[in-house]
């Protein structure tokens, strides 16, 4: 007997993601995705430190084995839930739900989920976030949007990090941006250096308006 399903493989994950989205309520949720070493944690440190007087924030920290990143976030004075995937290459909606149950969501404005360092797998899994933020450090090369189209297509915002190093690389900004625009015409792109603290203000402003907009939608 042949049985036709015509069902998305990830339907179960998507259901859970919708539940998460409902539970997150008025909290603006950002899912940070990028390669190992692209500067996700440094970007978070700078962001949390700069915005902690303005917003009530928390972080779900996905890490394959260690608690190193979680400790760096904790040092910023923000609550953090550590999730070890024990070798798993991505977070799922279910893991996110478990992690979020440790947070007082009603007392938050902004939640960051730092995904496992990987440009492929995390792009597939909706966690219930409002926005996927693709973080690409320019030292990785200008061909990355073209090589990892799913992530850059899904991204609601793109951060190009380590831009202070551009003189030392052959990163072709025009080529990277042209490929990116083909895949994703609408995502804002922020060129910055998290480590040097350069160019961060437009990113902060974008977060401010996203948080305000999410709150506005809830009331």
């Amino acid at each position: 007997m042949k049985v036709y399903l015509e069902q998305e493989i990830l339907q179960e994950n998507e259901h859970q993601a919708e539940e998460n989205r409902a539970r997150f309520g008025g909290v603006f949720v950002v899912n940070l995705i990028g390669s190992p070493g692209c500067g996700k944690t440094t970007l978070l440190e700078k962001t949390l430190t700069a915005l902690k007087e303005e917003f009530r924030m928390a972080v779900i920290e996905g890490d394959i084995y260690t608690t190193k990143d979680a400790r760096r976030i904790e040092a910023c004075g923000v609550s953090v839930v550590q999730v070890n995937t024990a070798g798993g290459c991505h977070l799922s909606a279910e893991i996110t739900a478990k992690a979020a149950s440790n947070l007082n969501l009603g007392a938050l404005d902004l939640l960051f989920i730092e995904n496992v360092g990987n440009l492929v797998c995390p792009a597939e899994f909706d966690l219930g976030e409002d926005c996927k933020a693709a973080v690409l450090s320019i030292v990785e090369g200008d061909d990355k949007p073209a090589k990892y189209p799913l992530l850059f297509r899904e991204a609601g915002v793109v951060v190009l990090n380590k831009c202070d190093l551009q003189p030392y690389t052959n990163f072709d900004m025009d080529s990277a941006l042209a490929d990116l625009r083909g895949l994703n015409a609408s995502a804002p792109v922020f060129s910055l250096s998290a480590a040097k603290g350069e160019g961060l203000d437009p990113w902060f402003d974008w977060l401010r308006s996203a948080v305000a907009e999410k709150k506005g939608r809830q009331t």
Binding site: V3, E8, L10
Partner: peptide, 8 residues
């Protein structure tokens, strides 16, 4: 990325 069908 979907399941079209199964046979059984």
């Amino acid at each position: 990325l979907y399941i079209e069908s199964f046979e059984g």
